[in-house]
């Protein structure tokens, strides 16, 4: 696979604050890669370094095999979609989209052709003469994407582009964005702290924590085989069972099963733990059953589906069991 972006030995300090101790990362051409992590983990800084808006303290950045580490942002063939869109308020939609082409001195006819294309692609044809202030959040977001796409950049950088939108709209735009990326075959580097967004859209997820890469893999693998306790906790929900200092078992709540304490004939593995149901919380498609384990302060959570034979209630005595293949050993 052709390489598009390579970050090599990147470190970043703000003053005496070491934000990124050391990162190596290669991004392939046409890949949808997501940098996922809690706020302050360095994901946005990394994105801004690719754009040229921050300079790495040390290390090199290659774009399409060219060393662009010291290039100013306006000399890099990448475009960014900002978190608050950063649309120019004194220009209308069309002028906003034209800006990059104008600066690159693209011939006028070519400009118009490209603008018509992206307006069609982002369904903004009816809004070309509007000012950003006259658009809804979702429409503004589309303009921001169109303004970046029109330049046909080598890489599109997206900094939590859906963060300011409400849940329903975010869901729809997630699919739209993914389809757009697939259709154009463009390289997308997407920054988010929303694990659900990362799982649904990405070809590959880079989970970051405190300026380090915790895990770099496919969404499926990240979810089912988290490498560390942090990843298992940050992406989805997990129950942890400490076997000893070095070995921790992580089990997803949907893989954790509850049975009666005094069950006669076990047709499944024997319970590993026993405890008492402390709470059952309604979550729409599921109930979450919280169980306090005997002889410890630990509370685990399991999902209860509405077609389950038995519905659990608080204060019931239960056993906890799982299939061995559903337990993942993770680093502390």
């Amino acid at each position: 696979m052709k390489e598009m972006v390579r970050l090599q030995g990147i470190t970043k300090k703000f003053g005496n604050n070491l934000i990124i101790p050391h990162i190596d990362l290669t991004i392939a051409d046409g890949e949808f890669i997501t940098l996922l992590g809690p706020s302050g983990c360095g994901k946005t800084t990394l994105l801004r370094m690719i754009a040229g808006l921050e300079e790495p303290t040390s290390g090199q950045i290659f774009l399409d095999n060219e060393d662009v580490t010291t290039f100013a942002p306006y000399k890099r063939d990448v475009n960014m979609v900002f978190q608050n869109y950063a649309l120019f308020p004194h220009m209308n939609v069309e002028e906003n989209i034209r800006f990059g082409l104008l600066m690159k001195k693209v011939p006028k006819e070519k400009q118009n052709e490209r603008i018509d294309q992206v307006l069609y692609l982002t369904q903004l044809e009816d809004f070309r003469a509007r000012r950003p202030q006259q658009l809804s959040g979702g429409q503004q977001q589309r303009v921001a994407i169109a303004r970046a796409l029109v330049n046909n950049p080598k890489v599109l950088l997206l900094d939590e582009p859906l963060g300011a939108l409400d849940y329903q709209l975010r869901k729809n735009l997630q699919l739209e964005l993914k389809n757009l990326q697939r259709g154009l075959g463009l390289t997308f580097v997407y920054v988010t702290h929303d694990q659900e967004e990362a799982l649904t859209m990405s070809d590959r997820i880079v989970v970051m924590n405190a300026g380090r890469i915790e895990q770099d893999s496919t969404p499926d693998n990240i979810y089912h085989n988290p490498s560390s306790r942090f990843v298992a906790q940050f992406i989805g929900e997990s129950n942890f069972f400490d076997l000893d200092k070095e070995n921790i078992l992580a089990i997803r709540p949907e893989k954790l099963n509850i049975c009666e304490e005094e069950e006669e004939n076990f047709v499944h593995p024997l319970p590993e733990y026993y405890g008492t149901v402390v709470d059952v919380v309604f979550y729409g498609t599921i109930d979450k059953v919280f169980v306090r384990l005997d002889n410890s302060n630990q509370t685990v959570v399991a999902y209860q589906y509405f077609d389950d034979v038995k519905r659990w209630c608080p204060d019931e005595r239960v056993g906890i069991w799982w299939y061995p293949q559903d337990a993942v050993g993770v680093k502390p």
Binding site: G52, A72, Y74, M80, A86, L87, F88, F99, G100, R147
Partner: peptide, 10 residues
């Protein structure tokens, strides 16, 4: 961000 966006747009 506006100035940074302009800079990002060449």
């Amino acid at each position: 961000d506006l100035e940074q966006a302009a800079s990002d747009l060449y």
